[in-house]
């Protein structure tokens, strides 16, 4: 098997005071290194839930999650956190940068709590790579939306992950800025052999993806 991440028969149910919401219904999914997969579907169809399960932020009610061919469904919080750090980079619609830290420090955040003396050099190189070599010491409120998302991408890459998970990465950007972020994704998955799974409403994403997965009411179509 060459899948870097895989979901088998995954169900996610939320018990909201009597009424049970089935956010994911018997989902099978996988992504391979270097592959760019988009997940599309109407609001409330379970896209974010699926991404959270893929990113080891949430555990399925039923079914199995494999990461790098290992069953990671029932790991402890500590082990899941360690796996996230090692394998997964997150990119959020609203960037989620830490406002008190500079661009460089934001990129370093995933390495801060650990002994990693080379992190600063890697962070600098990554910011140069995403075109922000001259913005290292700027704080997030001194950056435009597109620049913030680039910092977030650099942060997601700092630990050399195998998978990038992006929830509406272009949702808060204008079309042109969105396109430049997607160009960056394309470069990353080709050069770094990283699997990218992006949830989106953005039709221009299909120009870049290998595959599109449709979710409706928690089921893959």
């Amino acid at each position: 098997m060459s899948h870097i991440i895989e979901l088998q028969n995954v169900w996610k149910r939320y018990d909201t005071g009597g009424e049970v919401v089935e956010a994911l219904r018997d989902v099978d999914f996988h992504a391979d290194p270097g592959e760019f997969v988009s997940v599309m579907g109407p609001s409330g169809s379970g896209k974010s839930t699926m991404l959270n399960v893929l990113g080891l932020l949430d555990t399925p009610t039923e079914g199995t999650v494999f990461l790098d061919d290992r069953d990671v469904t029932d790991l402890s919080d500590r082990q899941m956190t360690a796996r996230r750090k090692e394998f997964i980079g997150f990119i959020f619609q609203s960037f989620h940068l830490i406002p008190t830290l500079s661009a460089l420090e934001n990129v370093e955040v995933p390495t801060l709590f650990g002994d990693d003396p080379a992190a600063r050099d890697r962070a600098t190189t990554l910011l140069e790579r995403v075109g922000l070599g001259n913005r290292l010491d700027h704080r997030p409120d001194q950056l435009s939306g597109g620049q913030k998302q680039r910092v977030a991408i650099a942060r997601a890459l700092i630990n050399e992950p195998r998978i990038l998970l992006a929830d509406e990465p272009t949702g808060n950007l204008d079309q042109e800025t969105g396109r430049s972020v997607l160009d960056l994704f394309d470069e990353i998955r080709r050069e770094d052999d990283v699997a990218i799974v992006a949830v989106t409403h953005d039709p221009q994403l299909s120009d870049y993806t290998d595959r599109t997965v449709e979710l409706v009411d928690g089921r893959i179509q």
Partner: peptide, 16 residues
Amino acid sequence: RQEIGVLRAVGVQRGD
């Protein structure tokens, strides 16, 4: 809350 959520997501342990 959100910031701490991001820290946890990118691999910062509870103890940290």
